[in-house]
Amino acid sequence: MSAPLLAIDHLEVVFDTRGGAVEAVRGVSLAVARGETLGLVGESGCGKSVTAQAVMGLIDPPGRILAGDIRWEGRSLTRDPKGWARLRGSEIAMVFQDPMTSLNPLMSVGDQIVETLRYHKRLGRSAARRRAAELFGQVGIGAPERRLDQLPHEFSGGMRQRVMIAMALACEPKLLIADEPTTALDVTVQAQIVDLLNELQAELGLAIILITHDLGVAAGLCRDVAVMYAGRIVEMGPIDTLFAAPAHPYSQGLLRSTPTLTASERRLVAIPGAPPRLIGPPTGCAFLARCPIGDEACRRLPPLAPTGAGGRAACFKAGRDAWADAREAAAN
């Protein structure tokens, strides 16, 4: 079996602070194959963005990769910082959350794309410009020649995100990491961006890691999904399986708190409580304090084990309807 495009192996990332080491990512393992689409879902602070930054090699002090490995096509990146730097922006590209602030406000959008092409592809100025115009066409920006010379503030939010995507795709990466790419946009524009990413994915055979707190967006773009909680993956598998039969109580709670058009419940329900502090987090299941069916056994760490439904979940009681009692209580 050939090596996957990207393999993350027991990754641990900590941030050293005055209050202690914040364990942001606590042993995440996942693999992404060529052309695969993976959603990394969870609430703020669960470690999904830090995982993405770690893949990009952009963890800055006080953060550091404490343990684990990141491999690209079988080669370890954590042991080869120079090779890692070469991949960044060429083989692995990233799109960020806020297109309003993620572009240099004083550089024309064309120049921002051209510099990437010149650096990685060693293209001449005019060749790079032609390629940039081509990319603008590809992401649906009209009149590319004229728009290349404009500054970011002359673009709307959705258009800026298209610029970001064009920039990310400039060097034909094999993997695109999109960190909340639609969160800062209007709902209608969100749908357009998701559609665009879908088209590009199919056209270019890109692998995509989509980081989002929005299960709906993940469903629109990803075939597989990994749910993160307190620095660990608690459930992963095909997204259809997750929607049909979430196995982990946290995934079940997340789905219950996601609005759908065919909601069986009248109201959205929040998961009570808050995630644990990541300075000295619990050694067992991190969700125990909020879990309606957790017990003494959950003080040990549940392994990420197959559920039988096609996915894997890190829960001793995987598959049980955790929130049945809460629902009954609400109904009465």
Binding site: R86, G89, M94, L103, N104, P105, E115, T116, Y119
Partner: peptide, 26 residues
């Protein structure tokens, strides 16, 4: 600390260029 610096780094721009071109003009 501004997001566009993160973008420039994610594009693989070397530190010298991030500081000397992107940041300096701003």
């Amino acid at each position: 600390n501004k997001p566009y610096v993160k973008t420039a780094r994610a594009k693989g721009m070397p530190r010298r260029r991030v500081l000397g071109v992107h940041t300096l003009r701003n």
